[in-house]
Simulated scan of single mutants.
Amino acid sequence: MAERVQKVLAQAGYGSRREIESWIEQGRIEINGQPAKLGDRVEAEDEIRLNGKPVRRTLDLAPRRILLYNKPEGEICSRNDPEGRPTVFDKLPPVKNGRWIVVGRLDINSSGLILFTTDGELANRLMHPSYEIEREYAVRVLGEFSDETRRRLRTGVQLDDGPARFDDIVDGGGQGVNHWYYVLLHEGRNREVRRLFEQVGVTVNRLIRTRFGNLFLPRRVPQGKWQELGEKDLNNVLKLVGMDEALPKPSRPAKKQTRKKTASKKQTRKKTWRRTSQ
């Protein structure tokens, strides 16, 4: 079945569809020796080249993967930096085919949860505004702010790239001149959290992303470390954006025979509860 070339490359982990469409316009992609055009479709037997190198198709790749990364302050979200600063890609495990795609960038002075995936289509859906994926942040500001400021942040303020607002703001307490708030929004524009606070005259001195969609920052993962999602959590993320499960569900193992032929009703209820609650 023929599919658009940008979808094939995205599924193979080369980038998001939007990125790949720009590569097509730049002439970086060839199909059977000819420059690709927007709208071109490819069959399984077609040869695709990116920057002159053959592209490995989805069937040749390892199963799609997602990593949770606890970003420390001081790292940037680019693959390479002319200034030689550390990047979030430096400590990731190697990928045999394809590459890691960052989902949910954070600026150099922010920390917390970032996702990486080998699936470009998944990355595109997680970041696309139409899916309205929630992001949650812990924000430390200088002093408390008034109810009127909270109202403005909830109803919306005008930024240079359009109106923006928080879906929710929860007081997190604090000591001295610093005060914590937990904020929620469902888009990921550049430095949006900081810019929202700056627009109402509030100074942010620390920002940590604690949740992205249905994934939380694991307490057991220290800064600068990563954790790969297992099958269950991976499939939950895929369901969130309407994608098929990554792996087939394992079949249940055969029940072991026991010495007792029957069990009491109380024992049966207890076993059933344990099985369904796991």
Rank of each mutant, 00 (worst) to 15 (best):
T87Y: 07
T87K: 05
V88T: 13
V88H: 03
V88W: 00
F89K: 07
F89T: 08
F89Y: 14
F89Q: 06
D90L: 12
L92C: 10
L92G: 10
L92T: 10
P93H: 05
P93V: 12
P93I: 10
P93W: 01
P94W: 00
P94C: 03
K96M: 10
K96F: 11
N97K: 04
N97H: 14
G98A: 04
G98S: 11
G98Y: 07
G98D: 11
R99A: 15
R99H: 09
W100G: 15
W100M: 09
V102I: 15
V102T: 11
V102R: 01
V102P: 14
G104W: 06
G104P: 12
R105F: 11
R105T: 08
R105P: 12
L106P: 04
L106G: 10
L106M: 08
D107S: 14
D107Q: 09
D107R: 07
I108V: 15
I108K: 15
I108P: 05
I108E: 11
N109E: 14
S110D: 07
S110T: 11
S111I: 02
G112Y: 08
L113Y: 10
L113Q: 09
L113S: 09
L113P: 06
I114F: 04
I114E: 06
L115N: 13
L115V: 12
F116M: 09
F116N: 08
F116Q: 08
T117M: 05
T117S: 12
T117C: 06
T117Y: 02
T118P: 02
T118G: 05
T118R: 01
T118D: 09
T118W: 01
T118Q: 04
D119C: 00
G120N: 00
E121V: 08
E121K: 00
E121C: 02
L122F: 01
A123R: 04
A123V: 00
N124L: 01
N124T: 00
N124I: 00
R125A: 07
R125P: 02
R125W: 00
R125Y: 01
R125T: 00
R125F: 00
R125D: 04
M127P: 06
M127T: 15
M127D: 10
M127G: 08
M127S: 15
H128V: 12
H128Y: 09
H128E: 10
H128T: 14
H128D: 14
H128Q: 08
P129G: 14
P129H: 12
S130P: 06
S130N: 09
S130G: 05
Y131H: 14
E132N: 13
I133W: 08
E134M: 09
R135C: 12
R135G: 12
R135I: 07
E136S: 02
E136I: 03
Y137S: 05
Y137P: 02
Y137G: 03
Y137T: 04
Y137W: 13
A138W: 01
A138G: 13
V139S: 02
V139L: 06
R140F: 12
R140H: 13
V141L: 07
V141T: 15
V141A: 10
L142V: 13
